[in-house]
Structure formats: C-alpha cells, structure tokens
Amino acid sequence: MTPDDASVDLEEIEIDLFIEAMLRRYGYDFRDYGRASLTRRVLNLTRRFGVRNISELTAQVLHTPQRLEEVISGLSVPVSEFFRDPLTFRALKTQVFPFLASFPQITIWQAGCAHGEEVYSLAILLTEAGLYPRCRIFATDMSQQALVEARKGIVPLGDIRQASSRYLESGGGRSLSQYFHARYDLAKFDEKLIENVTFARHNLATDGVFCEAHLVLCRNVMIYFNDQLQRRALQLFAETLVRSGFLCIGDRENLHVHADVPFEHADKTLPIYRLRRAVDAP
C-alpha cells in the first residue's frame, strides 16, 4: 500500500465520521447515499469551507450550526433545468394529463425540486392544458436554500433561449416569454405559476407520507441513493399514489434492481411508471 492509498483510506474513515456527525447532530441521514458522488461533494465542501481535510469540516459542522444550510446545499447540488428531457414532458402531457383530468381535484408531488425549474415547467404545461386551477402541487426538497430559490423563480436570461426550445419540444403551445418578465439579465417567472404550489422541506431519507397524489415526479434524485434508500423512496411514492397513479423519474434511472417494485412501465421508452397494485402501509 502506498502512502496515497493510505490517505484515501483515511478519507473514507473521515467521510464515515462526517456522515455520523450530520446524523447525530442534525438528523440528516446520508448513510445510504451513493458513496462516489457523496465523496466528491464532501471534498468540494472542504474547498468551499477553506479547510484542510474532512475532519476539519466535520468539526466546523458540529460547532457552527449557522452554517448547516450551506453544508446541506453543498451536499445536495440542486442542479436542474427548465423542461429537462422535453420528450418526457411531452409524454406527461399526452399520457398522464388525461388521467389527471379525470379527477375534480388533482394532487401532484414533485420531490427533490431543486431550484424549481421543473415546478415552473410542469405548471406551464398544466396551465396550457387547463388543469392548473384544479391542481394542488407539493414541491419538496431537503435543502431549505433550494426551496428559497425555487420560490423566487428567477433565472439568468441567458438560460432562456435553450429553455424556450425545450419548451416547444415539450409540446408547449405558446411562447415561453409569456411566462416571465425580463429585467436586466434576469428572468422572473410569473407568480401565478406557483399560486397552487406549496414549497416544503421533506427528506426522502427520513420523512414519511404526507399526502395522497395522482402524480409523483422524482427525477434525478434517487440516482444519488443506494439501492436501499431508493427502495425506501419508492415505497413512499407507492404509499402516496392513488390507485394507478403515475410516477415520473429521470430519463436514465434504473428501478429494476428491485424485483418487487410495485410499479410498471407505462411506456417502455419513457421513464414514466404506474402504480401496479395497492400498497399496504407498513
């Protein structure tokens, strides 16, 4: 074993201790996150905090609760975009909206909503389909800072051009510019789009069911989870969904490591699933 091997092994111990500190001090549970990505983000945090190693970061975290949100935000990496994977949005519109339309009151849960890009995107399509007034939407994330940003709905104007073309690919029927006001080099999205949205903190690793929904979106969140935590999240979604309710995940996520997932593909080419059977609460 080289000294460098030994230093990586030491880092692994330090990451375990960091995870333990986050759990015992603040109740944030990162034990079942994929280790490779988590390692990257913890190492990035050491740079952001200007400390020499993970142990120093852990000490800071333990003794400086004021900086907790910064740590969570660094670990969560709320990277998203408007109308990410437009074909999936188009499919939601053509394959899922008709199901939603059959209910007088529609409940949608967007778990891991990051800075809200996906929330505004979906709200626009729901508005155009005439469904929005009947919708109650829960947009949740474990990061408070992300939720604050999501509520603001402000994005760099530079991102709008690509967003516009993805909006059209998604089957958007107007012009994206109808939904935001540009000021200087920023675009602020219309607050009407979040009139029916409740932004709330919810942690898929530790929190439970809080609503009954017709559609759950949880895209590119479970990719950060190991199989066990992915299973927990799926169980939560299954308990949340009404009979035959829909689950939409990220375009390249894989649920098939679990033989017993209660979801079946609505369409094999799309990351859209349907609840297969009623699920008993544990």
Partner: peptide
Amino acid sequence: EYSRRFSYSVDE
C-alpha cells in the same frame, strides 16, 4: 461505486 457498479450524477 465500491460495489463495482455504475452510478450517475447530474452535478454541475
């Protein structure tokens, strides 16, 4: 991953 499986991320 240490389990010698692939994982994805959409980090920056």
